[in-house]
Amino acid sequence: MAKLRYAEALNQALREEMERDPAVWLLGEDIGVYGGVFKVTRDLMETFGEERVRDTPISEQALTAMTVTAAMTGTRPVLEIMYADFLPLTIDALANQASIYNYIWAGQVELPFVLRTQGGGGAGAGAQHSKSLDAFVAHIPGLKVVAPASPADAKGLLKAAIRDPHPVIFLEHKLLYNMRGEVPDGEHVAEIGRAAILREGRDVSVFATSRMVHEALKAAEALSAEGIEAEIVDLRTLRPLDLSAIVASVEKTNHAVVVNEGWTFCGYGAELSATIMDHAFDALDAPVERVGTLDMPIPYSEPLEMAVLPDAGRIADACRRAVA
């Protein structure tokens, strides 16, 4: 067990998987010589060479299509898309190729690739570099979508994603890269599709993803002082959902708050909310509360950006409304 930053944990996962399996290779913009904008791929080119760590031109569309075909032809590419804001450029290859080939060719084709990207606001990166487009990719059947909230999960889930025979979209968060946490050494592979209860509570279940997990934990502290015990569930995997964990928690607390940093309208939280009502309606003692980014582009100005992004205060308010 070592205390690593989130970015270091990802780097360790990539290094270990590349050592373990020569079919694993990396491609992306500035990931080689520069080591990645967020230094996730630091020093990997030095170790594994230019063949297995490829710096590419700026064309997410071409990169994703290349990744799909490379996966189809027997390698295990790990693609880095520098910002989640650029995911729309990858959608054709994901929605019309990666997600359907296994299906339309009746299982004869596997596509073992990982598309890593990072999203989220809070870094003063402006409207073009701060979005959370989780819903764009989670919408598509045939893709798995993973969003680790801790260094340990960053490593465990990335190793699991690389070993998965199907496309996995791996959503990192720019504000988490410097977060430190205990990370198991060596063979630490997490299970895709499992949520984790990070804090038990009896009054309200908060289902959160990525950085919002930490805001939810802060909210739980504040609520506890008021006598409201929130249960914080880190979904970890956005698709496939850990339905049984979600239902069990709602049946325990009878109140649900869903938190995702994306926009609420047609957002990932909307899907969660509907799923909870589909499967646990009779356990609900109040409507499901949604917390997300306000319905507008993300401002560059820091005070405005903070006002637009969801945070512990808004999560706590949603919990108070739920149990009112």
Binding site: N254, A283, L284, D285
Partner: peptide
């Protein structure tokens, strides 16, 4: 008073 009872699903159950 005379309209539909407004109750949570859990309360109804």
């Amino acid at each position: 008073r005379e309209g539909r009872v407004v109750a949570s699903p859990l309360a109804r159950r």
